[in-house]
Amino acid sequence: MRIRRNQRRRIVDRIMGVLSVLATVVALIPLASILIYVSAKGLSAINWDFFTKLPKPVGEPGGGMANAIVGTMILVGLASAMGIPLGILAGIYLAEFGRGRLAWTVRFICDVMTGIPSIIVGIAVYGTIVVAMKRYSAIAGGVALAIIMLPLVTRTTEEMLKLVPNSLREASLALGAPQWRTVVSVVLRSAAGGIITGVMLAVARIAGETAPLLFTALSSRYWHTGLDQRIASLPVYIYTYATTPYEDLHRLAWGAALVLLALVLVTSMAARVAGRRASGGNRG
């Protein structure tokens, strides 16, 4: 009797072990499928024209996505120019000065912001900047992406600065350096590795964002002509091309997906490597 019960326990143990392995395998199947399809279908769409030509109207063969590639770079650059400095400063406030009610509020708000759906950010930017400028523009798209980036950068900066030992701050202050000097040259410097990783991950994240661009930057069939004009981007092109019934455009969408995915994945990987190197260098 007893032996049979033990056997049953052992079998249940074995089954649950197998199930957990199975869960992991099942979760990785979509990953493999996405990577395989995007590389296979994307590679067949990519050629020299893809990187150098403008998109052609439906029906005409050829054409590329050069404007969308440049557009994505511009949008990400704009967002980074706003989001990174602001986020790092806010992170410094939270880590170095943040005590009391305001710091608590900012921390809470920062947390809430990471949970706001990106499409809502799009609406907010539409309601302020687009309405005020009376047109869709690269600036509006950049601001929307910067808003998504802001809490991510703030959070990482705060966490990384808090890891810096207090003795470093005290040593710098004891040498007569003012506090700002201490923060900039000592604290920020020794936390640089982690902050760079976090910032690059945030950049990778916004590079693939589509929803906030739909009614801020919109899209465009031409080269960008100014920051106050609408601008093309890879994610929006993937969306519009994938939802048309034309085979040619589907092919281009896969090509764009491959370029976008490569951009995002390479940035995320580089983030980890860069972070490891920067912090490794400081440790010595």
């Binding site: 996405i34 693939g208 964002e209 589509t210 997906a257 995002v264």
Partner: peptide
């Protein structure tokens, strides 16, 4: 992986 790539 970006959401729009999932969509595609």
């Amino acid at each position: 992986i970006p959401s729009v790539v999932y969509g595609l």
